[in-house]
Amino acid sequence: MRRIHADEAAMVKITDFDDAYQNGAYIPDADGFITRWTEAAASFRAAYPPVTHHYGTGPRQYFDLFMPDGASKGLTIFIHGGYWRRFSPREFSHLARALRDAGQAVALPSYTLAPEARISQITDETMRAVCHAAGLVEGPIRITGHSAGGHLATRMMCEGVLPDAVASRVVQVMSISGVHDLRPLLNTEINQDLRLTLEEAMRESPALLLPRKTARFVAAVGGDERPEFIRQNDLLANIWHGAGVEIEAMHLAGLHHFDVIEELERPDGRLLQKILAD
């Protein structure tokens, strides 16, 4: 476990919580990233059509499963972000390419978005998707996610979420730019859709919960992200390290909230290598 120094923790006073959690306004051509994701994802699905499985009856209760060409070496689950309010896994299908090429079966779950669903319901739906996918693919399980998906990936390995039979198969969890203490979101306009109460924010904050100690964890964030995302990243690493978890904090220099996930696309990507580590 690398020691987290005080100067890395980006402990800046928050005077505007909406600004602290704003990403797009600080990323040049932010909309262009979303366009490129959508196009790359569609191209990948056309070349490697997934099988869609439903874990519930709701219109967003499904996941796309991409299988490797040969025998699967295990299951990797990528959970999309969008502040629990936006996107679907089909804007991120292309992130399965390098994982699939490495022999992984890759599941990208969808979930009901806020404001239709509260975060506690989204957590439950994600758990159900993970369990369904685990029943289809044998071997070790790796779970990762970006932004809100980073929160959900981490949430899966809090005590009492996954059933023991599934949780015992999880070997690696990686949160990318995740939010792990939801209480600051109570002060944002985002909460008009999330409808978080203090009680729910505390129940759904991994940093305030007991983690399982059976998997390795990575808390990764772009070095050029908003200070609050760096703080959230290091907060989880420090607290869960203190709880006896094998966890590493990563700051990826020169990357921001949108291009950090490109590290999953390349065979030599740092995040890809971490999630695949034995």
Score class of each variant (00 low, 15 high):
residue 152 L to D: 01
residue 210 L to T: 15
residue 102 A to N: 09
residue 122 I to G: 02
residue 176 I to D: 03
residue 209 L to G: 07
residue 201 A to Y: 00
residue 188 T to Y: 06
residue 249 A to L: 06
residue 82 G to D: 02
residue 238 N to C: 10
residue 32 G to S: 07
residue 60 R to W: 09
residue 243 A to C: 13
residue 36 R to N: 07
residue 241 H to G: 15
residue 118 R to D: 10
residue 104 Q to N: 13
residue 104 Q to W: 15
residue 103 G to H: 10
residue 80 H to L: 05
residue 156 M to I: 03
residue 187 N to Y: 01
residue 245 V to Q: 08
residue 193 D to E: 14
residue 150 G to R: 00
residue 168 S to P: 01
residue 249 A to E: 10
residue 141 I to D: 10
residue 117 A to P: 01
residue 222 G to L: 03
residue 226 R to G: 09
residue 118 R to A: 13
residue 95 L to E: 04
residue 180 H to K: 03
residue 67 M to E: 15
residue 254 G to K: 10
residue 246 E to H: 11
residue 165 A to D: 14
residue 231 R to L: 04
residue 182 L to V: 00
residue 255 L to G: 03
residue 54 H to W: 09
residue 94 H to A: 08
residue 20 A to T: 03
residue 40 A to P: 00
residue 124 D to I: 11
residue 213 K to S: 12
residue 258 F to W: 11
residue 46 A to P: 04
residue 45 R to H: 08
residue 269 G to R: 03
residue 151 H to Y: 03
residue 2 R to P: 05
residue 58 G to T: 01
residue 183 R to W: 04
residue 173 V to D: 07
residue 146 H to F: 06
residue 90 R to D: 15
residue 216 R to H: 13
residue 196 L to N: 00
residue 88 S to R: 07
residue 181 D to V: 05
residue 195 R to S: 14
residue 155 R to W: 04
residue 3 R to T: 14
residue 51 V to H: 11
residue 257 H to M: 12
residue 267 P to S: 02
residue 259 D to T: 01
residue 239 I to Q: 02
residue 19 D to G: 01
residue 1 M to T: 12
residue 146 H to R: 09
residue 135 G to V: 02
residue 123 T to A: 14
residue 215 A to K: 07
residue 59 P to H: 10
